[in-house]
């Protein structure tokens, strides 16, 4: 079955660069260009994964979405790939190490720009992890 993804990011050019890769890899990608639109989509539709930009608008408006997700019993099971242009502002991170922000149960952080291969790998593995977790709970 085709996996449905939602991308929330306010930079249309960057979105185009990500969406093309994911479209090509057979995902169905919907886009919200601001946090409000994104939140609305999350609350009304079902997605297999969320691609979230942390640094939207003036501040880190993406973090607000991540926090809301964490509080929502249903939404917090959805895997999230956080894509950020400014990792130095999120936390100090060791160079070259995998990063786990742990906003929700299954998430990971990557820096803009994202290599196509790595993007597809991360998306697949996050979806798989989330599904395995869910299956284990039942």
């Amino acid at each position: 079955m085709t996996k449905k993804l939602l991308m929330i990011d306010d930079d249309p050019d960057f979105v185009a660069g990500i969406k093309a890769i994911l479209d090509n890899a057979g995902f169905e990608v919907e886009v919200a260009y601001n946090p409000k639109e994104g939140l609305h989509a999350l609350q009304t539709k079902q997605y297999d994964l969320l691609l979230l930009d942390i640094m939207m608008g003036r501040g880190a408006e993406g973090i607000m979405i991540a926090r809301k997700l964490r509080k929502d019993v249903k939404l917090r099971e959805m895997p999230v790939l956080i894509i950020t242009g400014m990792r130095e502002q999120i936390a100090f991170l060791f160079p070259g190490e995998p990063i786990h922000p742990r906003f929700v149960e299954v998430d990971e952080l990557v820096e803009k720009p994202v290599e196509p291969k790595m993007l597809i790998e991360k998306v697949n593995s996050l979806i798989l992890t989330a599904e395995t977790k869910k299956a284990g709970k039942k």
Partner: peptide, 10 residues
């Protein structure tokens, strides 16, 4: 620059 690079990747 990030957006440019992303599109180059594509």
């Amino acid at each position: 620059l990030g957006a440019v690079q992303q599109n180059l990747f594509v």
